[in-house]
Structures are given as structure tokens and as C-alpha cells.
Amino acid sequence: MFPNQFAYHRPTSVEEAVGLLQADPEAKILAGGHSLMPAMKLRLAAPSALVDLNRIDGLRGVSVNGGVRIGAMTTYRQLIDSAELRQRLPVVGEAAENVGDQQVQSRGTLGGSLAHADPASDFTAVMLALGGEVTAVGTGGQRTISADDLFVDLLTTSLQPDEVITEISIAALSGTIGAAYEKHRHPASGYAVVGVAAMLTLGADGTCQSARIAVTGATSKATRATAAEQALIGQLLEAETIGRAAAAVPQGLELNGDLYASEAYRSHLLTVYGRRVIQRAVERVRG
């Protein structure tokens, strides 16, 4: 199989990439290409042109300085290999280790994953839980979009067609944080049948100060599980509280069902994986 004909552009700056996208509304950005290229080979996507971001300097790398900044073209492999991330925010490398397979990890990028907004991708939920935001550059200039505002619907984000994500950032987090992500991996595709990400912070009195819990795979877009969050905030994180929060993860969510996993099964999986990640986040926050 091979894709339709297209023009290939290899810009060397973000500005040039934005210009190319503006000039051709049917053009698509090529980042890691591991969602786009399979879609093009199946002719599910037939863009008139590809704007390949891989030769633009400065879009790759991780810096941890209070907060965390990750270049949009940073690959999963680079996230896995970042010693700074492993120390400050191990959930990122752990999640990357379970994306696809080692070849996907070599090429797939964080920015590409967020911009594609696959309903079963891993980092949509992870970024929602971590309260991340993306920096996007377009003809209208530069802006930041919080993960909460980025995912609009199935494969749909609030990015404009001529906007390029350049960076993902996670603000400096005060106090002790604990974060975890786990998924029920589809045995064939490796995508999340359901995935749950959680980030908790503790107050000085040992109660949960903030909780962000997000799910993927279960709904048409990655979504916060607000009922579960509310069950944790202000509480001492004991087994009973964790159980109550886990049971609340599916609450209020419009769940998908398919041949592999019905809505009811996904709901059950959300409570199981919810309990696991909240438990792990609690263990982490307590050090």
C-alpha cells in the first residue's frame, strides 16, 4: 500500500511551516507520522501536502526547572530516556514506555499525539491529569492552550489549521505530588481500551489538596473524571476514600462500547484502573 500523491515540504523554521500551512488548507503536519502515515496508506487521509517538522531545530528536548517543558517533537523514546523527567515526574516516562511498541516510541512525538487527539491515546489523559498546556504558533501569533481546552471531540482539538504546537509545559508544582497512569492495553493495537491518569497533591495536614483524574479510551475524547476528583479533595487518603473515588470515575461520562469492550465493561475497567492509579499516586505522594 502506498499513499496518494502529495507535495512534500521540509521547512527549517516554525514560521516557514506556518506559512506553508496557511498557503494550503489541505496540507497536514507530519510529526512522528505513526497515526498519519497508516491513515494515508489506507487512503483514509489524502492531504495535498505534508509539512514535515522533523528538520526544524529546537522542537525537541526536555527541560526541568521547577516546571517541565517538553519540545513538541520530542519522541516517546526521549521521554523514556530523560533522567530529569524520571526524577521529577516519572509518570511521563512510564506512560511513554507503554505507548505502541519500541518502533512507535522511536518516532512518535508528544506534540503529534496531542494534536491528533486520538480518543484512545495515552498522553491526552496524562496531560489532562498533569494540568499541562501547549504552546501553539500560527499566523495569529503565539498562544498557550491548557489541556482542558485543547481536546474538543473525537480527533478534534481547538488548534487552528495553521497552528503548530511547539512546546508542552507543566507548571511548577508546589509541595509533594504523586502521579500515575495505567491502561488496559488492547492486545492487538496497544491503544488504551481504557486508561486512567491521576495527579494528587497533599496538604500539610495530610489531606488531599488537589486531585486531577483523567480518562482515555473510554469516551470520544480524553476527559476529566470530576466526580472522582471531588471524592478525594479535602479527604484523608485512606482505603475507603480511594475506593469511593475509584467507583466514581465513570460517573457522568458518556462511555464508548465496541466489539472488544462494552460500555458496562469499560465502566468496570475504569473503576479498577481508577483504584490502581489513585493508589499508586497516593503511595508516591507519601514518598
Binding site: G33, N54, Q103, V104, S106, R107
Partner: peptide, 19 residues
Amino acid sequence: CVVYLNGDSIKSCTLLAVQ
């Protein structure tokens, strides 16, 4: 179709020759 490209293990069916 796995090969190395610049030391990375990749699927050569999911990458363009121009890349």
C-alpha cells in the same frame, strides 16, 4: 520491516524514503 534509521529502530513501512 524494522530497520535502523540513525540508530533508532523504526518501521520502514511507516516512514517515507524522503524522511
